[in-house]
Simulated assay, not measured.
Amino acid sequence: MSNAAKAKGTRYESEIRDFLNANGFTVRRVVQMGRADQGDLHGYPLHIIEAKSVKSIDLPAFVRQADREAVNAGESFGVCFVKKVRGSTGEGYAVRSIATDIRLVRRLQVMEEALQDADFGRWFDIDEELREAA
């Protein structure tokens, strides 16, 4: 990898970190670890993020890498954030396999049902707040 490509990747990782942090998360870049790599960004709940700012997009390889690095990091889900050419950071793409997405949505469904059972009033307030924010 050339220094220019590495700088481009580092810049995109920093853009994602800053964007997520500006949106209420506490995300940090992590040191690469070769075969035991644990993704590019940590602190996005339940996920590791693999960031890609490349000309040639290879979704299967990106998803495999994110899934492998999630396992290495001990996180439940891997996601690859792919830069949109001439787009803002928020216009990029979050890519995962359908199987991973099903596991994530199932987890959200079960946790939401648990919150409804434990404290329906709190669930209702949160649901209403998040619907208004959309």
Rank of each mutant, 00 (worst) to 15 (best):
Ser56Glu: 08
Gly39Met: 02
Glu128Trp: 09
Ala22Gly: 14
Gly90Ile: 12
Glu112Asp: 12
Ala118Ile: 11
Asp119His: 07
Val95Arg: 02
Ala70Lys: 00
Leu108Pro: 03
His47Asn: 10
Ala22Pro: 07
Ala134Gly: 11
Ser53Met: 01
Gly34Asp: 10
Ile57Lys: 05
Asp101Ser: 15
Arg17His: 04
Thr89Phe: 06
Pro60Cys: 06
Val85Phe: 07
Asn21His: 07
Asp119Gln: 07
Gly43Glu: 03
Ala22Lys: 13
Ser97Gln: 13
His42Cys: 10
Phe62Lys: 01
Leu20Glu: 03
Asp119Tyr: 06
Lys6Gly: 04
Gly87Arg: 03
Gly92Tyr: 02
Ala22His: 10
Pro45His: 03
Ile102Leu: 12
Thr26Phe: 06
Arg122Ala: 08
Arg11Gly: 06
Arg11Ala: 13
Leu115Arg: 02
Val82Leu: 05
Tyr44Leu: 15
Lys83Gln: 08
Gly74Gln: 11
Gln32Asn: 13
Glu50Asp: 12
Ile16Lys: 00
Met33Cys: 08
Phe62Pro: 01
Gln109Tyr: 14
Tyr44Cys: 12
Gln65Arg: 08
Val95Lys: 02
Gly34Met: 11
Ala36Ser: 13
Gly87Ala: 09
Thr100His: 04
Arg107Phe: 15
Ala66Tyr: 01
Ile102Ala: 06
Ile126Leu: 14
Glu113Gly: 15
Ala61Arg: 14
Glu69Ile: 10
Leu41Asp: 01
Cys80Pro: 04
Met33Leu: 14
Glu91Asn: 07
Gln109Ala: 14
Gly43Arg: 02
Gly39Ser: 04
Asp117Gly: 08
Phe124Cys: 06
Asp125Val: 10
Gly9Leu: 03
Gln116Asp: 03
Lys8Pro: 00
Thr26Cys: 06
Asn3Ala: 08
Lys84Asn: 12
Tyr12Asp: 02
Lys6Ala: 11
Met111Arg: 15
Cys80His: 01
Gln109Arg: 12
Gln109Ile: 13
Ala73Gln: 05
Leu41Ser: 03
Ile98Met: 02
Gly121Asp: 15
Val105Ala: 08
Val85Tyr: 02
Asp127Val: 03
Ala73Thr: 06
Ala36Val: 05
Ser53Arg: 02
Cys80Thr: 15
Arg107Pro: 05
Ile49Asp: 00
Arg68Asn: 08
Gln38Val: 14
Thr89Leu: 06
Lys52Tyr: 08
Glu112Gly: 15
Ala114Arg: 09
Val82Trp: 00
Glu13Thr: 05
Glu75Gly: 04
Ile102Gly: 06
Pro60Asp: 05
Leu20Lys: 01
Gln65Phe: 06
Asp58Tyr: 13
Thr10Leu: 05
Val85Ser: 05
Gln116Val: 14
Glu91Ser: 12
Glu75Ala: 09
Leu20Gln: 04
Gly43Leu: 06
Asp119Ile: 07
Arg96Lys: 13
Glu15Pro: 01
Tyr12Cys: 05
Arg122Met: 10
Gly74Met: 13
Glu91Met: 08
Gly9Pro: 01
Val27Asn: 00
Arg35Asn: 14
Phe120Val: 11
Gly87His: 07
Tyr12Met: 09
Cys80Lys: 01
Val95Gln: 02
Met1Ile: 12
Val110Gly: 01
Gly34Ser: 11
Thr10Arg: 02
Arg107Asn: 14
